[in-house]
Nucleic acid binder design. Structure first.
Lengths: 355, 355
DNA sequence: CTGTTAGCGCCTTCAC
DNA sequence: GTGAAGGCGCTAACAG
């Protein structure tokens, strides 16, 4: 069932040359070192015939580079977001010839250390450390053993690590801008209070998004019509808050829901109350979860760019690794760059022109 | 930034013994070979002080075992299912001290070969080969180079590979049984026709599920009230089919939707037509996608056991690997076992008692 | 232009 | 009980 591996020396022998010659040919450095065309051809032919594949362990041991990355996230069971980030990461890695080990900690610090150790043992060239919920956290010291990029993580203190983050502030601004520009004046916030300092539960993400919203409204001389925090950003909360809003009889032009699940609950509440979207009230949201397009009417929402985040973090990491290698590992590199990834708007049918 | 690795010989030197002695101690074989307690202690102490971590590449090169697996799936962008399978796989792997490389092919055969090669190059001990849509496919010959388990794949021809599959037939039976036992007689199928031989689009899964449904109904002397195939198993199709059903004025006790997204569309159609779930008609479904619990009323559905599938496939693979190692790689092993994983019922509010 | 030599870090006989 | 020697497969000097 399991065939034996073919080694370089077998190829060399088959081709009638020395192992080192075969190595050079197969590494593509034959011309540079002016090895005869016939020898090259014989080596390549032998390699093909025997189905030779270089042993990456061995090469890694020798060169110190394994073209292997680690991706460690804390993704909580409830969050479906993890998948796309990982997908983006392995895509970007693949495009540059890297493979990736994936690990999940479920928020367990000990498990995180164990995973990082296990990856370190296997000589990964670097690590992407990710959270599914943007929030502050302390960075494991283990991360300093190898090149590391922080994905969707705001570190507690100072770091000299590269960070990749969604541009929540800008998305908040754009959301408010969109509603204002389409004539909405009485805007209700679903999911957060009106104080960025206490914008539980996904602290930083929510706070920055909120700040963006409030800033634009202030620039327009407007204030938020109401702002209701939610303990969980799930449909039942969206339903509850929206129902309460409707029952209070407050006039509303638009609901700005802080994620799609809240918006789903809001839709249900509006529907049961006989309020039409978007004719009576517009709904705008964040995330672009799969069901957003299937709600009726389709939900207009700012997509959380999971895939782009995963891709970008990985590209930054590989840049870091290869730069370090090329520079002969001199110095600390550029240090703490922060890369912000925009949240693109998915325009569907839930926001109308007013006035 | 990147500290140098500590090697075994450094530990040995620090402890004042030979490298081989240190190796034995750290491998836990010291007692067996009667190495002095003081030497053992010195080695352990030195290893701790220096923060020694064995280099898995080197050990792998020497022993042939890397405690590393590959997970290759074809997961299509639309499918959110992939994530949980991968999660199950890395969980199970972690529990037994393995790390896993994750790769996705997007259905591209060349990319699949490349990924399998890249994993082979890195000396993975074995591979889980997965599809997100259960269907027939040919197995890449590359898979025969290393221990392989097929996850959610029905191979075209014969295989001697271990397979892990969801028990679709049984889920179909249980679904029909549930509806019949709760007094439903006029049952409409949403998403498939009434001929298992043409149960497009997710051929085998749908066909087996359908067969299970039809078998139970036949045993009860019943027939399906109607059965409408859908090109795509998405909400718009569920909406369309259900709307058509309502407009035809056919009496209905229950809708059996072949996945939750179809059910979501069915809900929307029923709601817009003023038909109440479950008072007027029950809805039963398959998958347990995240939104199933958030629909109103909560959707009763058979959960597609993604996580359990990933876990089980990985456990089977590791069994295979370790058995082969222990047996000194003798013979082909047990060959083509097929393991069926049940789809557990998530009871919510969409199915009522009738009669 | 090609071959020989010397490790990368670890494990495993086999002498001492 | 312990240490020296060899080799897993590959690459990178350095001779020739």
């Amino acid at each position: 069932m399991v065939r034996k591996r073919v080694t370089l020396s077998q190829v060399a022998q088959e081709a009638g040359v020395a192992a080192s010659t075969a190595s050079l040919v197969l590494a593509g450095r034959a011309d540079e070192l002016r090895i005869s065309a016939t020898a090259q051809e014989r080596v390549r032919e032998a390699a093909r015939r025997l189905g030779y594949r270089p042993n990456a362990l061995s090469a890694g041991l020798r060169t110190g580079s394994t073209r292997t990355l680690g991706f460690v996230s804390d993704s909580v069971a409830s969050s479906q977001l993890a998948g796309e980030m990982i997908r983006g990461a392995i895509e970007a890695a693949r495009a540059r010839g890297y493979m990736v080990f994936v690990g999940e900690t479920g928020g367990d610090g000990q498990l995180e250390r164990d995973l990082l150790d296990a990856m370190f043992d296997r000589q990964v060239d670097g690590i992407v450390l990710a959270t599914m919920l943007t929030h502050a956290r302390t960075i494991p010291t283990a991360a300093t053993r190898m090149p590391t990029v922080l994905l969707n993580i705001e570190p507690d203190g100072d770091t000299d690590l590269v960070q990749v983050l969604p541009d929540e502030y800008r998305a908040g601004r754009e959301a408010a801008r969109l509603l204002v520009d389409t004539g909405h004046r009485r805007i209700h916030l679903i999911g957060v209070g009106d104080d960025p300092a206490h914008a539980h539960p996904f602290a930083l993400a929510a706070a920055q998004r909120l700040r963006g919203v409030l800033d634009v409204l202030a620039e327009e001389g407007l204030r938020v019509a109401s702002a209701q925090p939610a303990g969980q950003w799930l449909p039942p909360e969206g339903f509850r808050l929206t129902t309460a809003l409707v029952e209070r009889g407050e006039p509303a032009d638009a609901l700005l829901c802080f994620n799609d699940r809240l918006a789903m609950g809001a839709y249900q509440a509006l529907q049961e109350a006989g309020v039409r979207v978007p004719d009576d009230v517009s709904v705008l949201s964040f995330d672009d979860t799969p069901f957003a397009r299937w709600l009726r009417p389709g939900l207009t929402t700012f997509a959380f760019p999971q895939r782009a985040l995963g891709r970008r973090a990985t590209d930054e990491l590989i840049d870091l690794i290869e730069r370090a290698r090329d520079d002969g590992d001199e110095g600390a590199g550029p240090g703490a760059a922060v890369h912000l990834i925009p949240l693109p708007l998915r325009t569907r049918e839930s926001v109308a022109e007013r006035g």
